[in-house]
Write a protein that binds this DNA or RNA. Structure first.
Length: 315
DNA sequence: ATCCAGGTTCACA
DNA sequence: TGTGAACATGGA
């Protein structure tokens, strides 16, 4: 892969590059690599694949250098620009959430530490659905293992200057693999039954252009086996960028109960009711800040450790 | 060993 | 509508 394109994307203020493109709480995949002021990530644009280096060019412009091969086109360039703008909410106005959050003392520290952070979803609809599938009822370690297996077996390897990343697979890439193989080879457990159903759904619904905030699409997607309320809410919140949507699970429920109710455990209904009372319309954004704040310092230390190695690799 | 993970399905009140 | 067991796997 060689440098084929360079995009300049405008961003509204305030914008936190580091905690928007890299989320401290997310489990690591080999799809991306981050240092203090740069992020690398692969994308599938239709059948094309590319690696993108992203960094700020001043406070108001995100620069994206694209590495791909001779098949890269002007159309792909436009689609990538649109994908990145949507993935990181570059054009969003954060003032609605900020007005509520500034008045809430429980939000003071997260807001200060993560100022300008936005929801991020570099994945398209199919990809984020796969991520939530491997998250279901499993430890982060096992999610990481399942994801790594899938990327190794069905994704591509992208050669970048001095290092390599993996790319996601497309729905077509896994059609016909079969439940038995997903179970035995990829260690998906009972999730093996569901993965191919996901691919079938997105064979007829373009995961790059369908709008997940359309209620009928999400209703239809929830008919797919393996897609329940949690998965649907994560997609609405992440890919759909609905600031009010929130997927409650056993993990964030504990974090939210502690920060907003001051208790170790609480029912999901009590947590969501509290969030709605305090951040109406922005429950998901409030949750995002609360969760990332818990992980920020420990994860940042790990990121710092990686920098010397990455710097060598990137030369 | 036994429990349980960043859930969902299915059966049965 | 609501509750509870079963579901694969692997680490604690």
């Amino acid at each position: 892969m060689r440098l084929v394109d360079s995009l300049r994307l405008p961003v509204t203020q305030p914008f936190n590059f580091r905690f928007t493109l890299w989320k401290p709480s997310h489990f690591a995949t080999e799809l991306e690599l981050h240092s203090r002021d740069e992020s690398w990530r692969t994308f599938r644009i239709g059948s094309l694949v590319c690696g993108v280096r992203m960094q700020m060019d001043g406070a108001r412009t995100l620069r994206a250098d694209v590495f791909s091969d001779a098949s890269w086109t002007a159309d792909a360039s436009e689609r990538l620009a649109s994908r990145l703008t949507h993935a990181y909410g570059l054009g969003e106005d954060p003032s609605g959430f900020l007005a509520l959050a500034r008045k809430d003392s429980a939000m003071r520290e997260p807001l200060a530490a993560l100022r300008g952070m936005r929801q991020s979803c570099p994945e398209n609809l199919f990809e984020i659905a796969v991520i939530t599938l491997v998250l279901q009822n499993s430890t982060v370690q096992r999610s990481t293992q399942m994801m790594s297996n899938l990327l190794d077996h069905y994704g591509l390897t992208v050669e970048l200057p001095g290092f390599r990343l993996k790319s996601f697979f497309t729905p077509q890439d896994i059609l016909g693999v079969g439940e038995a193989v997903f179970r035995a080879r990829d260690r998906l457990g009972y999730r093996a039954r569901y993965l191919e159903r996901f691919a079938e759904f997105f064979r007829t619904h373009d995961p790059d252009t369908e709008q997940p905030n359309k209620a009928d699409l999400m209703d239809e997607f929830q008919m797919v086996k393996g897609v329940g309320p949690y998965t649907a809410a994560v997609i609405a919140s992440h890919a759909g960028r609905d600031p009010s949507a929130i997927g409650i699970d056993v993990w964030n429920k504990k974090i939210l109960a502690k920060r907003f109710l001051g208790v170790e455990e609480a029912d999901a209904s009590a947590v969501t009711a509290e969030l709605t009372a305090r951040f109406p319309g922005y429950e998901g954004t409030a949750s995002l800040y609360a969760v990332e704040y818990v992980y920020k310092d420990a994860a940042l230390a790990k990121l710092e450790e990686q920098i010397p190695m990455e710097r060598r690799a990137l030369r």
